[in-house]
């Protein structure tokens, strides 16, 4: 198990140019130019993450709002993104969290400009940063 862990860490370090491990949460974040270039609707974004193959892993998913907030740094702006990420996009991002007021039509989006979050129509096309690891909340 220790060996497996060591191998995983080594593999991430060797191949990990496209993603970033967050030591505090244990989550691994997509961090390649696709984060900057690709925009999707909510359902496309979910599918896109589930089909993503990056750094030899295929267990990517769309982050929840709480998870995406874990990489927000409100002492920074445009983007309000924690230190260490290569892709620093100052735009709205999709989260997997449906809006409880209209879960079929709306989901939560988070602005990386300052860190504000609001419900948004699921048809809107926004940026996507996929995540791997144990779901937080």
């Amino acid at each position: 198990m220790k060996l497996l862990f060591a191998l995983t860490v080594t593999a991430s370090l060797l191949l990990g140019a496209s993603s970033k491990l967050d030591d505090r949460t244990g989550l691994v974040w997509q961090d390649n130019p696709k984060v900057e270039n690709i925009e999707k609707s909510y359902h496309e974004a979910k599918q896109y993450c589930e089909q993503l193959k990056t750094d030899g892993f295929d267990d990517w998913r769309l982050p929840t709002l709480s998870e995406l907030y874990s990489i927000v740094d409100m002492k920074r702006e445009r983007p309000a993104l924690r230190y260490g990420f290569e892709m620093r996009v100052d735009e709205w991002f999709w989260t997997a969290t449906p809006f409880a007021g209209d879960p079929k039509k709306e989901a939560w989006r988070l602005s990386m400009s300052y860190g504000e979050a609001e419900p948004s129509r699921q048809g809107r096309t926004l940026h996507v940063r996929c995540v791997r690891g144990k779901r937080m909340r």
Binding site: M74, K75, F99, W108, Y114, E116, A117, E118, P119
Partner: peptide
């Protein structure tokens, strides 16, 4: 208590009707 860094005359709020966050 979190002041909005780009403009210190604002601070962060949460609307508990939905959970929406704003400055």
């Amino acid at each position: 208590s979190t002041t909005f860094v780009p403009n210190v005359s604002r601070a962060w709020t949460i609307d508990f009707r939905t959970g929406k966050t704003f400055y």
